[in-house]
Nucleic acid binder design. Structure first.
Lengths: 349, 349
DNA sequence: TTGAAAGCGCTAACAA
DNA sequence: TTGTTAGCGCTTTCAA
């Protein structure tokens, strides 16, 4: 590693006996350069190891081909898969990524963050923080004077906003209806924390499915966890006490479902005959739980990809000067994956 | 959202009746400004909503207070926890993050990546890609003319490089010795892909622990997986065939251990009495497998934190003009977490 | 304590 | 096809 001085366009120009402009034309592949000039300049560029400064370009072009990403809960599986989709699609579309992680989920103090991105000339921002509690309240104040397009992940559809979400309500319904189809009629629910929009939606789906099937519903048939396996354990214990005869349970995520299965295993509750279990998320591990877990798969990777694609469209339009952008919404449908936690394996043929 | 023009230092200066210089002094908190001037300028800054352009600053200061992060395998638990550590520590130390994800693990075509970061004036780079196969070969060519400090994660210690790694060899030994202490004497191993440095190290730890204990060792006692639960399943099947009487197994990661447990559960092999199982990684779920999984915990979050701290030290020194930096190495020790997959639960007191 | 001049590395707009 | 001029938004240097 050495402290070499940057090679600038100026040095290339001098060395090749042309103006900086001409060098600029070469590196930007403009047509209006004589072939022999181009070649000479190219040669000097190679020889000197010249690389244009993206910073200087950003300054003059007032854009950086960079997207700001705000994320939260990177230590969980979901957000990191979303980020995975974001990185891959951004790469494909020729954008770089500036990343910031929020420490909590519920902050409304987003102005410094936004300013930080803007001062770095990001062309757009992906708000990859799920809607929790009042953590969208800042929208009213801050959004109006934001000078780049913004896209939100995992939140309630809202007029004027570009959003990519999974249909959690549908997922909740699918899970519950599947249990009903298996002949279960006493179906409990372990939800995520109910200040989370996703948790609310899934629970509502469960509720409506029960109502539609004319099954008995009671607030005591639902317990609240915090997504962690540990909390799932506690919630399940409560449900076992409060809902005697429960023969099916829809659990808000796979991690909590894992501990449900564990306890059932430990206590000798037969899955799926005595108790059928459906999870949510579709993490790869779920196929290797014992018994393998039926779950609602949500494609978080796709959420990330779609966010980038959509945002880039918005950015392009914005850069073209279209100031009144039509917001774009995408709702991704989840998918039911049936495994042995709800359906006994067929006897081998 | 509106296409408002940026407020510049120039406008603030004009409005406050001072030079741009003075405004610059105010926003940088320089002492040499008269209190009343400072106040007047501050007021104008607030009123106009002026935010300095980090881009312009980076251009003139030749640094950006930004760190470039190269990562791979974001969809796996490990890398995303490392990234989590990186984001939090970077935030704390006042640095931003430019993120790139590598598609594969074994590429040596890193020049474009490096140039991309350098053209954006990153102050340093974190290479958060584990050592796999020959994917460090580029070091010889590229490293010499890199103009910023670089730190590597998860690789063999190498002269002249700054590195943060977990002691995988030690982890392998700890796992195996723990099994031996439980009275197991026929201990198999399911490794990760053996072109991974981490997988090699863990396996070597297993081997050496067996040799030290004078236990029989044979290449057939080890099977190779690819970290996925599915591959663990296959590897375990092979081991069951090839190593009759095996009563302990050290599995290269928790995901593969999960399927080992699952198959054992399914086939009626009693854990831990007939077969004791140790995993590696210490993912939170492992506590909720059935039976709960004994595992070697590696603190990937800490790896990320340490990487940032160390890199920032290097950056500071570098910026001070110290061109011959002493490389810094950190080896993090893993930790044995004992659960019921190796040790029968005590009868309740 | 303040300001003027120069310039970071590049490109847009125009002229030649 | 090429070059000149101006300037993106800021800080450094030096002089006042």
């Amino acid at each position: 590693m050495s402290q070499k001085k940057r090679v600038t366009i100026h040095q290339v120009a001098k060395e090749a006996n042309v103006s900086r402009q001409t060098v600029s034309r070469v590196i930007n592949n403009r047509p209006d350069v004589a072939p022999e000039t181009r070649e000479r300049v190219q040669e000097v560029i190679e020889r000197l190891g010249y690389r244009p400064s993206a910073i200087a370009r950003s300054l003059i072009q007032q854009r950086s081909y960079t997207i700001g990403v705000v994320i939260a809960g990177l230590k969980f599986v979901g957000p990191s898969r979303t980020l995975n989709g974001i990185t891959e699609m951004a790469e494909e579309m020729g954008y770089g990524l500036l990343l910031k992680e929020l420490l909590g989920f519920t902050t409304n103090d987003v102005d410094p963050l936004l300013q930080w991105f803007l001062s770095r000339q990001v062309d757009g921002i992906i708000w990859a923080v799920p809607e929790v509690g009042e953590n969208r309240d800042w929208l009213q104040d801050q959004l109006p004077d934001l000078s780049v397009p913004l896209i939100f992940l995992t939140m309630q559809v809202q007029k004027g906003l570009s959003i990519v979400s999974v249909d959690n309500y549908l997922g909740g319904r699918m899970a519950t209806e599947h249990l009903i189809e298996q002949g279960k009629d006493k179906i409990g629910h372990i939800s995520g924390p109910l200040d989370w929009w996703e948790a609310q939606q899934r629970k509502q789906g469960w509720l409506d499915a029960l109502l539609d099937a004319n099954l008995r519903v009671d607030e005591k048939f639902a317990a609240e966890g915090n997504w962690s396996s540990r909390s799932g354990e506690q919630a399940f214990q409560r449900l076992l006490d409060d809902y005697p005869g429960m023969n099916g349970v829809f659990v808000g995520n796979d991690q909590m479902a894992l501990s449900v299965i564990q306890i059932a295993c430990r206590d000798g509750i037969k899955i799926p005959d005595e108790l059928a279990v459906v999870g949510f998320d579709g993490i790869p591990d779920a196929a290797y739980y014992w018994p393998p877990l039926t779950t609602i798969y949500q494609d978080q990777y796709k959420v990330g990809c779609t966010a980038v694609q959509t945002l880039v469209e918005l950015i392009e339009a914005w850069q073209r000067g279209e100031t009144d952008l039509e917001p774009k919404m995408t709702i991704i449908e989840p998918e039911l994956i049936v495994r042995e936690s709800t359906k006994s394996v067929q006897p081998a043929g």
